[in-house]
């Protein structure tokens, strides 16, 4: 059996107290093997995004444990968590979270610069990643000059900058139109094919369709966990 890159046991996140307490994530057990693409679906407010934040060390659980590449996140200091995110996790957000004042290539190289890579190395890697997501010709454009799909592709390239063990995506197509959604689906399909471990929180069943596995959440807990057979590549004869 393939070793788990990401693992959680009894993972719980509560907000508030007493009668006003909300269990955003309620004793979740999860194991994501290396190379697996996992889609987490569910209605709004069921705790999907909170789970993703807990898995990526952006939030601390109220109870339970999380491991990433065998290292426990829930007991780590903020500094160690930052390092772990830098080296092992790539985030993709629904609202892109690109720096408006930086060009596409500068946004992508930011993660590498923060990791202490030389400007030349960081730029070379950013150029390669932009080429990979099909935006080499948009490298010097500001986010405001890019379409929604292009912005999200820049965000994906940024997430891949430090060759992460796992990419965590939070509603990556939530703000995109159909055409742009298709661009991202193709990109994720490529990543899955290449063996990149992916955890995608989504409402979009088309994203779920390209995943190896789909978990449905309800009221902070897993309602269903099913392994899917990917029947047809999204991009068909795309390239």
């Amino acid at each position: 059996m393939t070793e788990s890159v990401l693992r959680a046991r009894g993972l719980t996140r509560r907000y508030g107290r007493g009668s006003g307490m909300v269990r955003a994530v309620d004793e979740v057990d999860l194991s994501v093997p290396a190379g697996e693409s996992l889609a987490i679906m569910g209605p709004s407010g069921c705790g999907k995004s909170t789970l993703l934040h807990l898995l990526g060390g952006l939030q601390r659980p109220t109870a339970g444990r999380v491991w990433l590449a065998g290292r426990r996140l829930d007991t780590m200091s903020e500094r160690s968590l930052a390092r772990l995110r830098r080296d092992s996790v790539g985030f993709v957000f629904q609202s892109f979270h690109l720096m408006d004042e930086l060009t596409a290539v500068e946004n992508v190289e930011l993660a590498a610069l923060l990791a202490g890579r030389s400007p030349r190395q960081a730029r070379r890697r950013a150029g390669y990643l932009l080429d990979r997501v099909g935006l080499a010709d948009r490298a010097d454009h500001l986010p405001s000059a890019l379409s929604g799909g292009q912005r999200q592709r820049v965000a994906v390239a940024r997430a891949l900058s430090n060759e992460p063990l796992v990419v965590l995506a939070d509603e990556p197509t939530g703000n995109l139109d159909s055409a742009a959604t298709l661009e991202i689906l193709r990109l994720f399909e490529d990543l899955r094919t290449e063996g990149q471990t992916l955890v995608v929180v989504t409402h979009d069943s088309r994203i779920a369709a390209i995943a190896d596995r789909m978990i449905t959440m309800r009221d902070g807990a897993f309602a269903d966990d099913s392994r899917l057979a990917v029947t047809a590549p999204v991009h068909g004869g795309w390239r």
Binding site: L58, R79, A82, R83, R85, F91, H97, M99, L114, S161
Partner: peptide
Amino acid sequence: RRPLAVARTLGATPAQ
């Protein structure tokens, strides 16, 4: 707040 949060998501430590 937002650019710093993004930077931290990308690996900048709280001290940085």
